[in-house]
Nucleic acid binder design. Structure first.
Lengths: 215, 215
DNA sequence: GTGAATGTGTTGTTCAACAATCATGATATG
DNA sequence: CATATCATGATTGTTGAACAACACATTCAC
């Protein structure tokens, strides 16, 4: 068909991932292999490879002989995700080298978020926030932690999709991210880590509350 | 062909994983799709799904248009793995609930290791040691951490396969694992965590030295 | 001998097919 | 009327074959 190397499967996975995170495919929705393959313009075989990928990442749920469904995050999911985030992000800041190249990525992410706030584009604000946290994990220089964290973030965004009012979900943290970055750049890793701890606590509370409200 | 549900791909992945970790497929070895598919008795399509799985886990390396190879761990791999282990295992012990059910799993693993030592079965000693550390991660009650850690452990075992003298690699740690477990069960999480920190430092040193010796 | 053309084998992707399984609704039974 | 049984259709699980794109080795020309 069209020229697409390398990795049509990976590319299709990206596309599908966006559809899932973006809310086009709502949680719980069933994905028919034949129909979706036709829609995406790939073969059923390649689509199955994509399914494996995204199942591994926690975005899809696979029930044998029944099909694959968009995963439905639960409160347990949220709690687990925040536990992992605490475990990774706080030490990442506490042990960071203030002149690590990832600090630049953090700065870019904060600026992106602020720009998106100007235009009231809350979805982009969310993306930028996630990039910020990914940059924090990049401080560790651990390839494995970074890909693991990317998965976690994707799952979290899926959960966010269930919630409305993305403004309340993201806006309060834009400037706090800026603070964290400034503290780190100034060499006070300890304070940056402490602020991050507070951020995670508060964010988790808000998300859980929003979840409870739509039980 | 034969009746095999559910998940012939997953099952084949297990089989291949053992062949890789067990050393039947040595690091760097190239895996031909057609030939391996025939050997394993599955179709090429299914084998490709398996490849995705194991590539994701870090056991295989995929070079576009060239094929898949058994991953060759480097010193950077080791360093990264131990960084992750420190990040996960030490807090897991420090924050553990001494009567968590995973403590029983730790005890079982230690006993398995001691039994295998009697028979000088060092490969089994290695397996039991890994089970011990997996049990430590189970203390966190985090599903995501546990599957992540399982991957890390698989990669580490792949690296161990490159090294000879499995005795020196595993024997010294059997009783230390027992100590860690005893400390935790007795309620001194802090001491258990400290001992684990020392264990990781020493183990990493030994493994890196062995690696350097075969450059 | 160096470089270009060619050949061979492998991967990347698709398609078509079939058995096994599940969902649904119709039929029969109490 | 309610419920259990069964037939039907749709979907998944897996396979095999096909072909283009690509990598590597060899040959050929100069």
């Amino acid at each position: 068909m069209v020229i697409d190397p390398p990795g049509l499967a990976e590319e299709t996975a990206s596309r599908l991932r966006n559809d899932i995170i973006g809310g086009t495919l709502p949680p719980g929705h069933r994905l028919s292999e034949t129909r979706l393959a036709a829609d995406l313009g790939v073969s059923r075989n390649t689509l199955r490879e994509v399914f494996r990928l995204l199942t591994r990442e926690g975005l899809l749920r696979h029930e044998p002989n029944r099909g694959v469904f968009v995963a439905v995050p639960s409160m347990a999911t949220i709690v687990d995700i925040y536990r992992v985030r605490r475990l990774i992000e706080i030490p990442a800041l506490a042990n960071a080298w203030p002149r690590h190249e990832a600090v630049a990525q953090m700065r870019v992410a904060v600026e992106k978020a602020r720009a998106a706030r100007e235009v009231q584009d809350w979805r982009s604000v969310g993306s930028a926030n996630m990039e910020f946290h990914a940059a924090i994990v990049a401080l560790t220089d651990s390839a494995r932690l970074q890909v693991f964290f990317a998965q976690i973030i994707a799952e979290l965004r899926l959960a966010f999709g269930l919630l409305d009012s993305p403004e309340r979900l993201h806006e309060p943290y834009i400037d706090r991210n800026g603070e964290i970055m400034d503290l780190l750049a100034a060499g006070s890793q300890t304070n940056a880590a402490a602020l991050m701890a507070r951020y995670l606590d508060e964010s988790e509370r808000v998300v859980l509350a929003a979840f409870a409200r739509l039980g």
